[in-house]
Computed example of a mutant assay.
Amino acid sequence: MMATTHALWGMALAVPVFAVAPEFAPAAALAGLVGGLAPDLDLYTGHRKTLHFPVYASITAIPAVALAVIATSAWTVALAVFLAAVALHAASDTLGGGLELRPWQGTSDRAVYSHYHGRWLRPRRWVRYDGAPEDLAVAGVAALPLLAVGDAVVTALTLALVGISTIYVLLRKRLAEIARLLASLLPAPVRPYVPERYLEP
């Protein structure tokens, strides 16, 4: 799924905080945004393996949520939402496509690496690929409660993320070809540092 979809769902995890403890909601929304994006910092180094932990991140999030309930503060709530967003990102990547440059072709059997299982989990392709129309729909579902309960900053950020998502969906297939073209123009000494999917013919 798109990074923006993960960001929106991370923020959506803060929606209950708006209702129960609104004083902590800004910190929770920011933590959800950062947690939703954080796993994709491995985009160019072992993508969906280096920083994606679908099982371990989920296990870690459980005591963090319990701590936030028992000892509620801005820090504990933010930590809980951050870890839950990291876990949701890693786990939900199995619902999308594989790691190939053109995931709409469905040629990859690698969705996300599970360190717990010691193997790659296969893509289920419920969302066919990142940037597919259904990916935008999933992002929209996360945006609705944020628009309903969020303050002005959350509303503006949500609308910006949905806007970026829409543009990405419209350009998705062209961007893959541009990336491949740019990678082919790189000098030979640099190519070993470029992820293999960008060098696909």
Rank of each mutant, 00 (worst) to 15 (best):
95 L>G: 01
82 F>V: 02
79 L>D: 02
94 T>A: 13
53 F>G: 00
84 A>T: 12
76 T>R: 05
51 L>I: 08
85 A>E: 10
62 I>V: 15
114 S>M: 01
104 W>C: 04
82 F>L: 15
107 T>K: 15
96 G>H: 02
56 Y>N: 01
81 V>D: 04
88 L>M: 14
55 V>L: 04
54 P>H: 06
65 V>W: 10
79 L>W: 07
65 V>D: 03
85 A>N: 06
83 L>A: 08
72 T>I: 05
110 R>S: 09
100 E>N: 13
49 K>R: 15
80 A>C: 10
97 G>V: 04
87 A>V: 08
80 A>H: 10
82 F>K: 03
78 A>G: 07
76 T>M: 05
57 A>W: 00
91 A>V: 13
100 E>P: 08
117 H>Q: 11
59 I>S: 00
108 S>Y: 07
89 H>W: 11
87 A>M: 05
78 A>T: 09
53 F>C: 02
66 A>C: 11
52 H>Y: 12
109 D>N: 15
104 W>N: 11
54 P>L: 06
51 L>S: 01
57 A>H: 03
43 L>E: 11
100 E>G: 12
111 A>F: 08
76 T>W: 08
48 R>C: 09
68 A>P: 10
95 L>V: 10
63 P>D: 02
47 H>T: 09
105 Q>L: 15
107 T>M: 13
64 A>M: 12
93 D>W: 08
82 F>Y: 14
56 Y>S: 04
64 A>V: 07
114 S>E: 01
101 L>E: 12
